[in-house]
Design a protein around this nucleic acid. Structure first.
Lengths: 123, 123
DNA sequence: CAGAATCCACGGCGATACTG
DNA sequence: CAGTATCGCCGTGGATTCTG
């Protein structure tokens, strides 16, 4: 059996870096929303998230673009129009992301109950 | 096709909460290491990570214990001995975690190259 | 040995105001 | 519409010291 630990310690300084980029407050959610919505404009994405600030959406989109997970197309019009969509690389992340979300969904109850009993013991 | 966005917005305030707990600096790594090592003592885990502070390891372990992902067994001896191991719930997270790590591993090169070209364009 | 407690630096993130 | 710029809070996490 392969030692996952070795995976992480030898190959995964870069891997941990990637995980950290994804696991900020908004990145995963943006990817999921773009997967559902296809090609979307800035404001569309913001409405779909409904509680992200304009600044953080900009920052998040730039970060994802830098990593090659989304593409950003600018139309030289007035008023300006900018469209975002997942790249193939971004799309390839979805199975793993979905699995994580599904796991979280299935175990939400168990985890919350565990937290409650843990707190009542340590109160 | 199911709208992932709906999943996240309706069911996933709790789900996002879980993802956030996992995606701090150390939690995923601890889970992976415990999966490789089985039952381990505090110092064993710390050595396996080799760059985590004592404080952060304590904090991380408590958080994972509260969520029911790891168990903590105390032996009333002198000097004290405490052993950690994955619970079934913690183990059930591994497939999703592995998938994410594998994706990151496979696409590290592409991502880093994307970052470089992005920076050279925006310099 | 396995922590608890304290102090502190840094960076993520939000609020607000301004612009092409 | 889709940003950019600036300011400031606060939470994460590191270093250090102390304890049962």
């Amino acid at each position: 059996m392969i030692k996952m630990k070795e995976k992480i310690k030898t190959e995964l300084c870069p891997i941990r870096d990637i995980i950290c980029r994804l696991s900020d407050k908004w990145s995963m959610l943006v990817i999921v929303i773009l997967n559902d919505g296809g090609t979307m404009r800035f404001n569309e994405i913001q409405k779909a998230m409904d509680d992200i600030s304009q600044r953080m959406l900009t920052v998040t989109l730039r970060s994802l673009e830098a990593d090659g997970l989304i593409s950003r197309r600018i139309y030289p019009e007035v008023p300006p129009r900018v469209e975002y969509s997942l790249t193939p690389l971004g799309t390839s992340l979805l199975p793993a992301l979905t699995m994580l979300v599904d796991w979280a969904k299935e175990n939400t109850g168990a985890i919350q109950e565990s937290r409650r009993s843990f707190e009542s013991v340590n109160k």
